[in-house]
């Protein structure tokens, strides 16, 4: 029944803090307050996960990325291959090769630098911005947690959901490419465990960077519409313009593009795809090397989180 089951998704299984046993009788006597009482971080993260999982928007956004990912990286190329047509100038055999299990990492993550990132950024912005629109932040804070605890719970819950989305994308792509390999009697050359883990980690890093940018924008602008609009314009338009228009024209932009989150996300995906992979998704290009890309993304993740923390702890909640 919907009201009796809740998902304690962190896996921490943190029990409620053991307070003095209290009868459930109405108007039970109060115990003397002993300083700040608030739930444990695990309980708060569980609460945030409940909020996320019960929210239809979460399912739309988190479901949409792996679904689109599958459509663009596998379904469309496969239909084109079956018709024997060339795909973006590639002969049918090359199209088949690009869908096989050895390309699992690339095909699971290629959407993240652009549309996947935009969707996950939207999720972060909704998570943070709605609290202001609904007036729920003051309700939450009224229960006694520190503001940083609220942010930590939001971030952890977001990371859990993003990790699941990355796993789903890998799972769907693996199923599809395995089926294609079997159907076409091609060699199923699965990536090694190490490559797979690096791919999952890299995917989560990119997803977390976008999600935390959404969280920052949501808290900074205390709403949902404007952060989403700004985030989408940045991810989908501005970065593209800088890379494709400004960088070729002006040297300064050519240098600056190496510091953009989207460019680094694209470079990290390119690096994780390995040598010899065909990079055909927009946004995926080896502009900087993989280690540098991972470093820059981690830096952005920390920067966005610190800025959010500063804003949340310093501003009045009105």
């Amino acid at each position: 029944m919907s009201t009796t089951t809740e998902t304690e998704g962190t896996g921490s299984g943190t029990p409620e803090p053991a307070g003095p046993a209290r009868g459930t009788a109405e108007a039970g006597r109060r115990t003397e307050p002993t300083g700040r009482t608030a739930g444990s971080l695990g309980a708060m993260t569980g609460a945030e996960l409940t909020k996320l999982l019960r929210r239809p928007a979460t399912w739309v956004l988190v479901g949409l990325w792996p679904a689109l990912q599958l459509v663009f990286s596998t379904v469309i190329p496969f239909v084109s291959y079956q018709r024997g047509a060339t795909f973006e100038g590639l002969p049918p055999e090359a199209v088949l090769a690009s869908m096989l299990p050895d390309q699992l990492v690339l095909n699971s993550l290629s959407g993240l630098p652009l549309f996947g990132g935009a969707l996950l950024l939207t999720l972060g912005a909704l998570l943070a911005g709605s609290e202001y629109g609904w007036g729920t932040l003051k309700t939450l804070l009224g229960q006694g947690p520190r503001r940083l605890q609220v942010l930590a719970a939001q971030l952890l819950a977001l990371l859990v959901v993003l990790a699941v989305a990355v796993l789903v994308s890998f799972g769907l792509t693996a199923l599809a490419s395995g089926a294609i390999a079997a159907g076409e009697s091609a060699t199923a050359d699965w990536p090694t465990v190490g490559r797979l883990l690096r791919g999952l980690g890299g995917g989560l890093l990119i997803a977390a960077t976008w999600g935390s940018l959404g969280l920052l924008l949501g808290h900074a602008l205390r709403s949902t519409a404007l952060p989403i609009a700004l985030g989408l314009v940045w991810v989908l338009a501005v970065e593209n313009l800088i890379v494709n228009v400004a960088a070729p024209l002006l040297g300064a932009f050519d240098t600056a593009q190496a510091a953009l989150p989207g460019v680094n996300a694209g470079s990290l995906v390119a690096a994780l795809a390995g040598d010899g992979a065909t990079l055909r998704t927009p946004g995926v290009a080896a502009i900087v090397d993989g280690a540098q890309a991972a470093g820059v993304l981690a830096g952005f993740l920390v920067l966005f989180t610190v800025l959010t923390a500063l804003l949340l702890t310093r501003r009045d909640v009105v």
């Binding site: 919907s2 009201t3 809740e6 409620e16 803090p17 307070g19 009482t37 608030a38 739930g39 444990s40 309980a43 708060m44 569980g46 609460a47 409940t50 909020k51 019960r54 929210r55 239809p56 609904w134 007036g135 729920t136 932040l137 003051k138 309700t139 939450l140 229960q143 006694g144 947690p145 609220v150």
Partner: peptide, 21 residues
């Protein structure tokens, strides 16, 4: 100020976790 998509009880459960109640 509550989450519109949650029931009254679910809203309070979320808050109880924050409160440590």
């Amino acid at each position: 100020g509550f989450y519109p998509y949650l029931s009254g009880r679910e809203n309070l459960r979320v808050l109880a976790r924050y409160a440590g109640a």
